[in-house]
């Protein structure tokens, strides 16, 4: 039996072992594995967004440790890892959603097309118009489908008149693959749709602002497999026009939709590689443990 001494924060393995003479859980050998740096290829030739020395703190607690990562143009990058590993926190660094949490502090350099997004003169409103976000739980506004999609456009004044706005709403709904289902009910409440439709409505809402990057935070975790399949197909279509970073708990989903996969563990970026490689021949022992289902 391995003893877990001097392990990473949050370890409960030692207590588990002493409490139960016959451990149901295998000794968690992964805590002995060194994750001092990132293995694989965190950098790409044509980056859309770049992150260097990223550290995120909640008050005194550090959530992200020295992460370097590029998000390439028109690629889908999947961020995977066990719960609480900081992948959602890291995703929110890219559109400064962490700004809304008063105790959250982000350090490091982050760029969009080479521009520092944390610069003093960078307007977070403009940034969020360029880097859209889809959340874990579908969160349509309690307004009509039309108003949901039109909201961002109205906010930023993207349409000068009613017919332009109509066109924009229609185009966004078509891109999100929802138009054919709701075209006769545009004035009905967005909250009345099914879970999968609501999530596609949220995607349409994000697209309507015409962002360059879309961040997706576990967009299908609240959906059934059929709705999930529809959204995965949609992501594949979207990548021709947009750069997508997706956080997911489902390794199958990461394998299906992404070109590159980044594996996070306890706030550190362990491995980044082409998705194929991560799932067939992972470089790091922790990645292997995770994708083979030894823990997670």
């Amino acid at each position: 039996m391995t003893t877990a001494v001097g392990t990473l924060p949050g370890t409960t393995a030692a207590t588990l072992e002493s409490a139960d003479p016959k451990p149901i859980i295998e000794p968690r050998s992964e805590f002995d594995i060194d994750i001092s740096g990132t293995v694989g290829k965190p950098f790409v030739d044509n980056p859309k967004m770049q992150s260097r020395n990223c550290n995120v703190f909640y008050d005194d607690k550090q959530a992200i440790f020295d992460v370097d990562l590029d998000i390439g143009k028109n690629e889908i990058i999947a961020l995977i890892g066990p719960s609480g590993c900081g992948k959602s926190t890291y995703l929110r660094v890219f559109n400064r959603m962490n700004d809304t949490i008063p105790i959250c502090r982000v350090t490091g350099e982050h760029t969009l097309d080479g521009q520092d997004i944390y610069a003093k003169d960078q307007d977070p409103v403009l940034l969020r118009a360029r880097v859209g976000m889809v959340f874990q739980k579908p969160n349509p506004f309690p307004k009509s489908i039309y108003d949901n999609v039109a909201y961002g456009a109205r906010l930023h004044g993207l349409a000068s008149n009613r017919s332009e706005l109509d066109d924009l709403v229609e185009a966004s709904l078509i891109k999100a693959g929802l138009f054919s289902e709701v075209k006769d009910d545009l004035q009905k409440p967005g909250t009345g749709l099914s879970g999968g439709q609501q999530q596609r409505l949220c995607i349409a809402r994000a697209i309507a602002v015409d962002p360059e990057v879309i961040l997706m935070d576990e967009p299908t975790s609240a959906l059934d497999p059929i709705a999930t399949a529809v959204i995965e197909e949609l992501m594949d279509d979207l990548k021709t026009n947009y750069t997508i970073a997706i956080v997911t708990h489902s390794m199958q989903q990461a394998a299906r939709v992404s070109q590159r996969t980044a594996y996070f563990h306890l706030g550190k970026l362990v491995e980044v590689n082409d998705t194929n490689q991560v799932f067939t021949n992972p470089e790091h022992k922790l990645t292997e443990n995770y994708i083979t289902g030894r823990f997670g």
Partner: peptide, 20 residues
């Protein structure tokens, strides 16, 4: 989640307050 959605679309804090 509603406030987050608005902020994520680029609404300013005051817009989020008055719209949602």
């Amino acid at each position: 989640s509603i406030k987050e959605a608005a902020v994520g679309l680029g609404a300013s804090p005051v817009q989020t307050l008055f719209h949602h």
